[in-house]
Simulated assay, not measured.
Amino acid sequence: MKISPMETIFNIFNETATILQDELNCSYLEALAETGENLFHGNIIQEELSELTVKRLQKKYSELKIDMFSQEQIRKAYQLAILKGMKDSVQSNHQMTPDSIGLVFSYLIKKFMAELSSFSLLDPAVGTGNLLTTILNQMDDTEITSYGVDIDDLLIKLAYIGANLQSQPIQFFNQDSLEPLFIESVDAVVCDLPVGYYPNDEGAEKYTLKADKGHSYAHHLFIEQSINQTKPGGYLFFLIPNGLFESEQAPKLHKFLSEQVNIQGILKLPESMFKNPNAAKSIFVLQKKAPALKAPKQVLIANLPSLSNQSSMENMIGKIDKWFMENKLEQ
């Protein structure tokens, strides 16, 4: 039975990571990062390996010419290996953004950024980089300067190695995303918002959206930080929990958004995409206010159908295209 290109790459990732995991006595994800480095450099860079292990790895690596595969084939195989490693080691906040959601983001970014032949893009909660690389791989006709920030050193190492293997020149920063960022203002932000409380009460003090008492919501602070980091007239694309505006801190968020941005769209993802309907999410599109910039005549509000239902999706894309014709031509 013929195996797919993605399976071919995954099998090498998986087998070599398992060899390194046993030899280095480390986690599967750490070993995956190590094997990714080896594949990228075309060389075994770990010096402490036994001669037998080096030979086993060399044999496996010789079966794979990574540059013969497309960026998406590499990304999907790498993602599969990361998902295997995450099954037993990762907090829920570190879940990877599903491919289908990444493709919807890609479509929306293409539509909203269509007039720009080049732009800068930031993901302030980049994790393993899957959402960001999904978007970049769909937009190879546009020159994008991209940045990823994450506080988790293993996740960002996996993101950096994945980007290298996909030949995506992303600049990564391993830091608390809610501290000052060493990045110039960008044209667009994309973020699968980390939902929960921010433990650093002192760090939250500088934010308008800090809680009046107790811990502040990290997802509110991420929204504020992202808006601060965006150029006037720039766009922000967030994956938000459907209950974002139902908490006790929501009135403050609502007021802040009305002052800072024009809401462009809220696209509710199908509940079937989520194991728990209470965990369902939406894509929230904002544009940072700028002089002479008008709000859309009406906000794009849509309930997305199942992404596998082709006729319903084509119908929805037609509605979105119509909204763009009616609302973006006047800008």
Rank of each mutant, 00 (worst) to 15 (best):
M68K: 13
K110S: 15
V104R: 03
L80F: 11
D99L: 14
H94P: 00
P98T: 12
M96G: 02
V104I: 15
F105N: 00
G85Q: 09
Y78C: 01
R75K: 06
I82V: 14
F69L: 03
I109G: 02
M68C: 06
E72A: 10
I82C: 08
M96R: 05
G102W: 10
K76I: 10
V90H: 07
Q71A: 15
P98V: 10
L80M: 15
Q79A: 12
E72C: 08
I101K: 01
V104L: 13
M68W: 03
H94R: 08
K65I: 08
K87F: 10
Q95V: 10
V90L: 06
I109Q: 00
N93P: 00
I74V: 14
A81W: 09
L108N: 10
M86N: 08
N93Y: 06
T97P: 03
S70N: 00
S92P: 02
L83S: 12
D88H: 11
I74R: 10
S92G: 01
N93C: 04
F105D: 03
I101W: 02
Y107W: 05
Q79N: 15
V104Q: 07
L103H: 13
I101S: 02
F105W: 01
V104W: 10
T97M: 00
I74W: 04
S100A: 12
Q79M: 14
R75N: 01
L108K: 07
A77K: 02
P98W: 11
N93W: 04
S89A: 13
V90Q: 12
I66Y: 07
K65H: 11
Y78G: 01
S70M: 01
V104F: 09
I109E: 03
P98A: 12
G102K: 08
I101V: 14
S89D: 10
S89R: 11
Y107P: 00
K65A: 07
I66G: 11
K65T: 06
L83T: 05
G85K: 07
A77Y: 01
S92A: 11
L83C: 06
N93M: 06
Y107K: 09
G85M: 04
R75C: 04
D67C: 12
Q71H: 14
E72M: 12
K84L: 10
F105P: 01
L108A: 03
S92F: 09
D67F: 11
I101R: 00
V90R: 14
L83G: 08
S106C: 04
M68Q: 14
F105T: 04
Q73V: 03
S70Y: 02
Q79S: 14
D88Y: 07
G85A: 05
I66H: 08
H94E: 06
I66V: 12
I66C: 10
V104P: 03
D99Y: 13
S89K: 13
N93F: 02
D88A: 10
D99H: 14
D67V: 09
L83N: 13
E72L: 12
V104A: 07
L64P: 02
I82K: 01
L103M: 12
